[in-house]
Design a protein around this nucleic acid. Structure first.
Lengths: 217, 217
DNA sequence: GACGTTTTAGACAATGGTGTCTAGTTTTAC
DNA sequence: GTAAAACTAGACACCATTGTCTAAAACGTC
């Protein structure tokens, strides 16, 4: 028998290879043989660890989601409690967000697989939605609420603003992210700058009275 | 032999059914048998019209692209030459755009198939990019240039503004479009209104001096 | 070094797909 | 009405894939 949780090297290697092959070929197009040989492992070993293809696929999705979730959490909590120069802070934050959560390998995997296999596995789609976009959305909304309360922004609907912020950041990256090309640092920064500039034009507080240094909430 | 261009009913029926099945199952997951029976046609007929599966797939993509392209053109040229109330005109335009070109069946098909099979058929992806997003982008940029010239907007970078406009319109619809659910009229209108409001806040001309009725350019 | 576990390579049946072929039927055109 | 074209249903060979099984090899641990 196999210790389900003892993440021996083979198990990880299989997960990794499976993610790559599933992402490139889709569920139906990926063959266990290809995954096994990409993982430098015999086919039988794959079947030993994950009873069947469906099972392996679910394990891969779960694994990628866990990683993406941890990354998302750490990125979201990286916004400074007391922003010094709002525009720069937001731009840097946008760069980190796209780099760590959108344009990375896991982000690509989830977008692609959820979209193409979501109809076949509805609960997969639902899980992704709850853990991915939903969580980003509420966290961003909370951030903008905080900034509005401090007088640094003038946002009326926090949820709409959150979605728009994400959409703006993605605006210049969509082509790259769709094709799977990871944009360069320069592209990321330019995209973030464009996005933040428009966002602040629309939602910036009119009086640029540099916040009267409220004590951290 | 078969008249390649004589679009007999069977041919169309096959194209239609194939689009549906390819979209639902992906290329690898779709079987000719399923397509044939969905089209109420024998398998042999499919092979008579389209020599092989690859060929059929290409024909479907081409067909959908042509339709989407025509629809895009007619929608883009529907923006009034002399806008009366910019915000309302832009909102109505955004609704038409999402309704006719993004949230419809063809839009869903293209997004899904290009994303999941784009890596296998690079020229497919390239073609879609040229005919879809690229074309929308340049057309919108031209529109914003025109509006800026008339003093109705204050846009510095037309291309960036075009991408941002599209991104904002999509912001509230992404979940629906990803899942394949066609949003209701109400949702479309609310999404358009949110998008246009933010867009005009960012790019609206400061002096709301109702354009001095320049002769149509 | 011996034992149990894990891994391997390969054979294997079962399944389901593609693409071809044939023989018979329907549709279309003249 | 008749002949050609298009279509159907089914059988078919061929191949790839899934998932099982076995016997041998590698590994780790005591």
């Amino acid at each position: 028998m196999h210790s389900q949780r003892g993440q021996c090297a083979k198990r990880l290697s299989i997960l990794e290879a499976a993610a790559e092959v599933f992402c490139r070929q889709g569920f139906a197009g990926a063959s266990i043989d290809e995954i096994a040989s990409a993982a430098c492992v015999s086919r039988q070993t794959v079947y030993n660890h994950y009873r069947e293809k469906d099972n392996l696929f679910m394990a891969v999705v779960e694994d990628v989601m866990d990683r993406a979730n941890a990354m998302l959490f750490s990125t979201l909590s990286s916004f400074p409690e007391i922003p010094e120069r709002l525009e720069d802070d937001l731009a840097a934050f946008a760069v980190r967000l796209s780099q760590n959560c959108i344009c990375n390998q896991d982000g690509k995997f989830l977008r692609k697989l959820v979209l193409s296999e979501g109809e076949r596995y509805p609960h997969l789609f639902e899980g992704w939605r709850q853990h991915g976009p939903r969580k980003i959305g509420t966290a961003l909304a909370a951030l903008f609420a905080r900034l509005s309360y401090k007088g640094l922004l003038q946002v009326d609907d926090f949820d709409v603003a959150a979605r728009q912020f994400l959409a703006l950041v993605n605006a210049d990256l969509q082509m790259s992210t769709l094709f799977g090309v990871t944009p360069t640092e320069v592209e990321l920064e330019s995209a973030a700058r464009n996005a933040v500039r428009t966002f602040i034009r629309a939602y910036g507080a009119p009086a640029q009275a540099n916040a009267p240094a409220l004590p951290a909430v």
